[in-house]
């Protein structure tokens, strides 16, 4: 489905992505993990067209995405939610979803078609229900809880009917209860929508619990890939994480 081959990105003297290759099977649920500064978000930014890689290719069903603009990549069926929820502060939650649906229907440049129509509204209301946000549908996006904002951010991406969905730390900044609620929501959305889902996560419990496949990055390089058991026992991964903890203790 999605395949990355020999990706390299340098910022000045720092190699943020160092010859990374990985692949994600259709319908899989994978995690990208690694210590701070391992280049996880940089990797996402290259996949979604924010950053232009120096070398390598990113193939979606065999088609190279490198060099396309973010919105062209979106149109190919690759959606994304952000580490800091990226929403429309003054829009009500329902309006925000309707906007995204409307954009997906290629209406964003239509001067003489009403924004508020039955098709758009119905799909947005469905999404609202799927996301579990019905109760705050008419509240301004800036006023709903942090967790709801993260869910809305994912919802905006889902409105585009993506085949691949990238989530950058869906549980960032949440308390323990809220975290697991979010994880369950993500899992449910993945199952119900037939998505190929890739997420970045710091909480190992969450990663080992739900991810089918895990990729570990360190200093921009891929040091391990495998399922939860393989990663848990991988020497290099243990060193990467324990080493870091030892440094922090010292």
């Amino acid at each position: 489905m999605l395949e990355i081959n020999g990706l390299v990105k340098k910022f000045g003297g720092v190699t943020a992505t160092n010859d990374v290759s990985m692949s994600f099977a259709e319908g899989s649920l994978s995690a990208v993990i690694g210590p701070n500064g391992a280049g996880k978000t940089t990797l996402f930014n290259q996949i979604t067209g924010h950053l232009l890689p120096d070398q390598g290719e990113i193939l979606l069903n065999g088609e190279n995405l490198v060099g396309l603009k973010p919105r062209e990549i979106v149109a190919k069926g690759l959606g994304r939610a952000f580490q800091v929820a990226s929403i429309f502060p003054t829009f009500s939650v329902l309006d925000a979803l309707m906007s995204s649906v409307s954009a997906h229907e290629m209406k964003s440049e239509k001067l003489f078609q009403p924004f508020d129509n039955k098709v758009v509204r119905e799909r947005a209301e469905q999404l609202l229900a799927v996301l579990g946000l019905e109760s705050v549908g008419h509240v301004a996006s800036s006023k709903i809880s942090h967790g709801d904002q993260k869910v809305l951010d994912i919802g905006l991406a889902l409105a585009l009917k993506p085949r691949v969905l990238l989530l950058d730390e869906p549980t960032a900044g949440m308390g323990p209860d809220e975290r697991w609620q979010m994880v369950r929501t993500v899992q449910r959305l993945w199952e119900d929508n037939n998505l190929t889902l890739i997420f970045i996560e710091h909480d190992m419990d969450i990663v080992f619990e739900i991810a089918q496949h895990i990729h570990v990055l360190r200093y921009g390089a891929l040091i391990a890939s495998g399922n939860a058991d393989e990663i848990r026992t991988n020497e290099e991964v243990i060193e990467a994480y324990l080493g870091r903890e030892l440094e922090e203790d010292a």
């Binding site: 979604t48 973010p70 919105r71 979106v74 149109a75 994304r80 990226s86 929403i87 429309f88 502060p89 003054t90 829009f91 906007s99 995204s100 954009a103 997906h104 964003s108 440049e109 905006l156 409105a159 585009l160």
Partner: peptide
């Protein structure tokens, strides 16, 4: 409200 997000939702 959020030009970057709009771009990412496919708006030109």
């Amino acid at each position: 409200d959020n030009q970057e997000r709009a771009e990412f939702l496919g708006v030109r």
